[in-house]
């Protein structure tokens, strides 16, 4: 049972506004550097890519290495020129894809 990712953007913005986007997702980000109680290495299991697009166009993305903390958090900017839909995508080592969308209106 994993929590849904959290995404925070304003509901609306004026054309030309630069908004702040915040995202947080639940993931242990197992680094592959740790060992279990028997001394066996715990295999790496991380979210390796995060992508944010707006109306299909790339806004921001991040390639992650095991040094990104558990429950990855991102804060970045987006320039709003029209109303539309943000799509946020997280992909982990197992290929599991988590996607979320958020709409923004023009003021």
């Amino acid at each position: 049972m994993a929590a849904k990712p959290r995404v925070k953007i304003p509901k609306s913005a004026a054309a030309g506004d630069i908004i702040t986007v915040k995202t947080l997702i639940s993931h242990k980000m197992e680094s592959g550097q740790r060992k279990d109680d028997e001394g066996n290495p715990i295999p790496r299991d991380i979210i390796n890519t995060f992508t944010c697009t707006f109306n299909g166009k790339p806004v921001f993305s991040c390639d992650m290495d095991p040094a990104v903390s558990a429950n990855p958090y991102f804060e970045f900017k987006a320039k709003i020129t029209e109303a539309g839909t943000f799509t946020f995508t997280w992909v982990d080592d197992a290929g599991e894809v988590t996607e979320m969308t958020k709409d923004i209106a023009l003021k």
Binding site: I18, P58, V59, F60, S61, V68, S69, Y73, E75, K79
Partner: peptide, 17 residues
């Protein structure tokens, strides 16, 4: 980590942990 921006970012600013 490596951040990738675009003109649609508006500003090249990003934070993580």
């Amino acid at each position: 980590a490596t951040f990738h921006f675009s003109p649609a970012s508006g500003e090249a600013v990003a934070s993580t942990r």
